[in-house]
Design a binder for these strands. Sequence first.
DNA 1: TCTGGGGTCCTAGGACCC
DNA 2: TCTGGGGTCCTAGGACCC
Length: 430
Amino acid sequence: MSRAIALIDGNSFYCSCERVFDPKLARVPVIVLSNNDGCAIARTAEAKALGIKMGDPFFKIREQCRRDGVRVFSSNYTLYGDMSARTNAVYRDFAPAVEIYSIDESFLDLSDVHPDRRGELARDLRATVRSWTGIPTCVGIGPTKTLAKLANHIAKSIPDLDGVCDLSDEDERAAWLCRIHVGEVWGIGRASLAKLEAMGVDSVADLRDLDPRPVRKAMTVVGERIIHELRGLSCLPLELMPAQRKGCAVTRSFSRRVTERAVLEQAVAAHATRLGEKLRRGGLGTSHLTVFYHTSTHDRGDPMRSVSTTVTLPEATNDTLALIAAARHGVDRTWREAPDDRPWRYSKAGVVTTDLMLLDASPRALIGQLDRKRSGPLMAAMDACNARFGRGSVVPARAGLAAKRTWSTKFEMRSPRYTTQVTELPTARA
DNA sequence: TCTGGGGTCCTAGGACCC
DNA sequence: TCTGGGGTCCTAGGACCC
């Protein structure tokens, strides 16, 4: 039996999550905004038809949204993450192996399903997910991940296919590859597209038929792999065990421009706190913390400043207090008072780590060892309180975190966390 | 100082993804 | 006024070693 991979994803996933809990959103244009209500990152078909593009800044389309009756939502990651888990639970009923690729996409191994039955299984899967979670999906099937992705793209763009496209058959596949633009291929971005167009490549079939060697020269081994994958030779295995992550970052734009040192310190302390939570969830630690903050390139005429500094810790840790101290130290050694009456107006700050390791397996310091016997239980107690009473219920004192946050990210149009907060359950009146 | 042929590790930057 | 956040992989080049 031939190898077969399916890629299933939620249609306009974030928008579909909002629709599940508000029937009035059906058939009207809906968009979901990025953090800070910055730009559109999910659009329903109706919103796309109005010309709203991926990444359109909200302040530029606000008026159009009002005029055209577009329903606008801030992103509600708690809700989307929970809905994602529900869809994956359904996928696992249909396939022996599932790779969760992103919040709304999963690869399924269908190799053991007879080729004649794969389309039927995909239709059954779609219907089940729709009925059990409310999320509409599309399914693409092919002998490699790259072809499954391409099939999914076809399933989405040709309504007659009813949300399922199977590229298992070689002749059918060849016909489709001639009709699809090479820019739709997974892994071909702007830069590669320009190179390929210069080489006279237009369709996916053109790319498939290229000699891999010159492509490797121009697009590295990544480009070469894509060609093999398009020919049906699998180079990208299903990754069933999530790999240990290598880096972790918490970065946010401010909801206003920030000029005060105390506010910047409060922000990086808050980001370091969140970083600690993320690290502890994976049992990970870091011994280097990079702190950055900068002005905005959109503020033309304003003085620009971009700062990035890396603070070294004596040994790996995920202790919030140690991370906050490191983050504040980063600000300490880089903060400058403006030379004249035009202060730098910072737009964004963050903390970044790139050297994560399992804390239990990390080497201990000879000098400056942190007290893990104390830190572990303290952090566990803090995490437990915050899990029970909501994030931010317990914060370290002294870091200024208890004070009002005047800079924090905007979510002015966020829907309730219907599935994870008992206080935000929908109300029914009878 | 020059001459040669390997290695490893780290970092920065580019590209791409969702 | 208002333009997201968080990842991965790959390569080149420098520092350093034998």
